[in-house]
């Protein structure tokens, strides 16, 4: 696993898990690996893995049941909320990039449509 070593590892791993939850790869209510297993799977320190779950729990996207483990929330609205937020972040990052190139928001939308068309053409 390659991480950006200048950003806390727990931030990066929790983003990966959050992404999987939003995409539905990890379905609502499903059980997540234990802290040590998560650490081994992602090649990270067990304390870092514990921190990942702490963070996801704080956000309410995961819940830990005593003696049972950590689970993805069953609250679909919560997942939707996180998904919206992550998508919003991605959109803002994209816009910032486009603006940085001296283009306007309209250009950004047009670029998106072209890119989508190009993708279709590839198929």
């Amino acid at each position: 696993m390659d991480y950006n070593p200048t950003i806390p590892i727990w931030v990066q791993v929790s983003t990966m898990l959050r992404r999987q939850i939003c995409a539905g790869t990890l379905s609502p209510g499903s059980k997540l690996p234990g802290g040590r297993d998560l650490a081994a799977e992602y090649g990270i320190n067990p304390n870092t893995a514990a921190r990942v779950y702490q963070e996801l729990e704080r956000e309410g996207i995961c819940t830990t049941k005593r003696g049972m483990g950590t689970f993805v929330t069953q609250d679909e609205n919560k997942i939707k909320e996180v998904r919206t937020q992550m998508a919003g972040d991605a959109a803002r990052a994209y816009l910032a990039e486009i603006h940085g190139l001296g283009l306007r928001t309209e250009d950004a939308i047009r670029m998106l449509e072209t890119a989508e068309g190009g993708k279709d053409a590839e198929k």
Binding site: Y3, P5, R36, A39, G43
Partner: peptide, 28 residues
């Protein structure tokens, strides 16, 4: 992976290395 599996709350692991990148995510 094997080394990480040994880590626990009541244990201490000390790894020396000059391959710093290998240790980046393992050590805290």
């Amino acid at each position: 992976r094997c080394i990480i599996s040994e880590a626990a709350e009541d244990k201490l692991l000390l790894l020396s290395s000059h391959l710093v990148e290998e240790m980046e995510a393992v050590a805290d």
